[in-house]
């Protein structure tokens, strides 16, 4: 029972994050932000999970590194898209 309560908060947060991701569809920046939010929830879930596996928190560093790389990659796409097409509307991805 306590385990359900233990997992339910991050699950609800994850679903909210997904909802936030799929409902923001105009600007690429806001999508990247909500994606970042999902990454944070995942980090949170990973942290709880690793706490159950002998507190192996070091593994979460690897996750953080990759997520930062992803974030940087997304932002660089954002910047180059604004420089070439003048906006960051997600809808205009289909013209690329």
């Amino acid at each position: 029972m306590i385990m359900i309560l233990y997992w339910s908060l991050p699950m609800i947060l994850f679903i909210l994050g997904l909802f936030c991701f799929v409902s923001n569809r105009k600007h690429l920046l806001s999508m990247l932000l909500s994606l970042e939010f999902i990454v944070l929830i995942l980090f949170f879930m990973l942290f709880i999970y690793l706490n159950m596996l002998n507190y192996e928190s070091y593994f979460s560093m690897m996750f953080l590194t990759f997520s930062v790389c992803e974030g940087a990659l997304g932002l660089s796409i954002l910047v180059s898209m604004i420089r070439t097409h003048g906006n960051d509307y997600f809808q205009s991805f289909n013209i690329m």
């Binding site: 799929v22 569809r25 991805f93």
Partner: peptide, 16 residues
């Protein structure tokens, strides 16, 4: 109209 996000949204709701 190629609104990928709308399909994605529908997909997510369906999963939910």
């Amino acid at each position: 109209n190629n609104s990928l996000k709308i399909y994605l949204m529908l997909f997510v709701f369906w999963i939910l």
